[in-house]
Design a protein around this nucleic acid. Sequence first.
RNA 1: GCGGGUAUGGCGGAAUUGGCAGACGCACUAGACUUAGGAUCUAGCGCCGCAAGGCUUGCAGGUUCAACUCCUGUUACCCGCACCA
Length: 947
Amino acid sequence: MDSIQKIEKKWQKYWKDHHTFEAKIDKNKEKYYYLVEFPYPSGAGLHVGHVRSYTALDAMARKKRLMGYNVLFPMGWDAFGAPAEQYAIKNHIHPSAAVKENIKTFKAQIEDLGISFDWSREFSTTDPEYYKWTQWQFLQFFKKGMAYKAKKNINWCPKCKTGLSNEDSSGGVCERCGTQVEQREKEQWMLRMSDYAEDLIEGLKDTDFQERTKTAQINWIGKSVGAEVDFKLKQVDEKLTIYTTRPDTLFGVTFMVIAPEHPYVDLYSGLISNMNEVIDYREQANKKTEFERTQLVKDKTGVKLEGLTAINPVNGKEIPIYISDYVMMNYGTGAIMAVPAHDQRDYDFAKKFGIDIIPVLAPVYLGDDAPVEGKKNTEREVVVVVVKHPKEDQYLCVRYQKFGWQSFIMGGIEDDEDPEGAARREVMEETGYTDIKNVQSLSFVFQEKFYAAHKDVNRLTTNHVLVVELGSLEQKEMSEEEKNIQEPVWVSKKELRDFLNFETHKKICDFLESGGQAFIEDGTHINSDLLNGLNKQEAIDTIIGYLEEQGIGHKKTNYKLQDWIFTRQRFWGEPIPLIYCEECGWVPVPEEDLPVLLPDVAEYEPTDDGESPLARIDEFVNTTCPHCGKPAKRETDTMPNWAGSSWYWLRYMDPHNDQEFVGKDALKYWGKVDWYNGGMEHATRHLLYARFWNQFLYNEGLVPNKEPFKVRASHGMILGEGGVKMSKSLGNVINPDDIVSSYGADALRTYEMFIGDYEKEATWSEQGLIGCRRFLDKVIRLADKVVEKQEYSKEIEKDIHRTVKKVTEDMDSLKFNTAISALMILLNKMEKMDSITSMDYRTYLILLNPIAPHLTEELNEIHKLGNPICESSWPTYDDAMLEDSEKEIAVQVNGKVRATITVSMDDDDKEIEKKAMAAENVQKHIEGKDVVKVIVIKGKIVNIVVK
RNA sequence: GCGGGUAUGGCGGAAUUGGCAGACGCACUAGACUUAGGAUCUAGCGCCGCAAGGCUUGCAGGUUCAACUCCUGUUACCCGCACCA
């Protein structure tokens, strides 16, 4: 046999010469469209991670073809972007030259792997024939008002000297270089992606994406349902509109916060007496990077607007207004109502600024004695008083002898009392301490439902928790009788939890220890007028109804998803095909003038002034208005590198069409991508952009499906030996070329498919690779046993059918590792036989072909087993051949395996039971015991239960 | 903080969806053979134990004749989002 490399080259040439993998529209065949994310052709060349996903889809594609499907499996290049530009800047050559060079390397590497891409459909996003249509589609957005230019604060990377979309500056750093982004005001082209927020969530239902991909998208879109509420300003006849998801807590509003950039700050600067302080704060906030704003989460800052207040629309209370950078201008209305009792951020702010905290929602606990049905229901307002020792770290508790209660001091609030008064009275009455220095009401209120045995009624108590400080231990005399009813006890902080026998009082300990926190869970509304007694959801519905009735608010859904910033101030991207005319405004370049080509000059450096390098090229900039013919200027910003990848799968269907971006017939036949493979890092960027783009085209009637992709799968990363990420600096990068030249492409492919769960990370192991090479060598040696015969060997006939089934199913669900394992098992069996038939061998080779295509073709040819495998069909299996007539099953005694017995498929349960009981070791374990039960699961197991 | 995920021998990982845990591969051990290699073949290989046997799927409970699998709680790690009201 020739060397591995020679064989691989030979078959690669064969497939190329015979156009084996070129897809043609064939209405008699069912289509299947496999897509793998096209790479950015970097100078570093192919990575073993690319090999993993390309091979996986290649294996599925090859198998589907053998099964008779018309498979589209294309490849191309996503070549706009920074690295090529950097290279060009350094070496003063046009980026397209560098791109051309890199593509050549990449393509040769992929061809060496024997991936069955249809190269007749290859293109690069940087080809003018391609980006002509990217520009054309941008104009469709423009014409529908879906692209607009807006001056706004954008994310600016000072290193790359370009604006970035929110998706590209996630976490406040530039996706490309990791630099902290700054906020810069700039005019930018935007695509109205936020209009599609709901559709992008809804559309997920029509896809089979992995759960993690769906949730990543849903989180990014960030839908929240709430209400907008208008608060009148006291000093002027104007209202401040806020957005909240918790309109049910409206009665607990004690202040409001607006974003530092909120327009009201300037609008009402005349009314604000501390404007200097406010402006100061705003400037500081502006200087903070996104990073600083989010890193200092805990520490709230802000300034009160003196002289400007709002009125709570539901109770008429006057409410102070603050500015603070914890409220963002770009979400909701840039203003919030603050309810410190029920929002942690508001709570932190209120604590820092000494603002009131009013609980309006109380948790409801069930007492130890549950309410009894049929008993009278009564309600009571109650205080629970935590008394601090004046010197020691101790708390005053009470032992209520009669009921065995050990608790804080408790008591009812009388009609003419407030909670504070009740607290004072109860402390004095029950414990005799009189020197009460200070009573503080905690923002902790809870309700408890229980059966009050001493009164024989059901009770619902609303418990107000107060903290009392004593000035001294001055105490009035208490009678023995009183002490017998209730005995005051000082308990140290450490023993407090053990002493208290009320669960609710332990919760008070939690609250005190945590330093206080907002209550954000569900409960029952209190202090809330029409909402009292309702739970969270009921109250939200009720109050929204009320607000709408009164015309002071309405239900509102908000999304975090924002419009797509679609311009970059860089050279190496698609020029935006628009012209600015003093007379006519923005005018699209006429379709017949597309593409607007990137000029061919040697100045690619980005500029500090935020202008694209294209702005320096007069011949490019100066043109005439297509509308009125007067002198006009071209847009000089370019598109982001996500533009070209937002529709490339459509172009593959019809890549050479110079009349349309894709022909109708091709669209109709190939439809949507059936299986799309790509990296997890694109779950919220490329994948969202692509879906948005496609949905827009769908709404314009330009494509037949609203969702472009059916299945989305992603491969796990391949880590270097030792489980660390492969990186140049660690020097542990595996170059696929080296592996191919020393072990062969088939061995590399087999190994990468065998390495583990396709969707999880995997660690590279040279030894593992060698193991796979050995496996292929064994397959070669197996040929020595072959005798010509057109039927399966009786001995392994069933094994072959089972393996066909296993491999067929596993390969469709990315379980390549178990498919290969099944093939190894079958191989081990065949190796033990004296001879195998040519049909055994050929079937085996076809099953292995999708994984190791070169070797299997070669063996098939040199042993004259039949047509080239790529021109043959996938084997089928017979269900009747899957089961053995006899089977070994386990016999358990009390769940422990004690023996195995051989049963025939025709044996009935009685027969099996008889055999099980007869087994020697079973006898030993049931001897002298009662057989309680015998469970026979046919074909699986017998379990004998004894006592 | 919110959301998603993972946890099984020395290692990568299997387990028909509740039915013999550790398939298959790697590493390792012993032996055979040789053309001395990235060999090949045979046997062994979760842990404790001479054995009988016992223990074992992150940890603690529960349901069941039977739990890696279902339920409750808990820990650790990974990923995504995050002052989003």
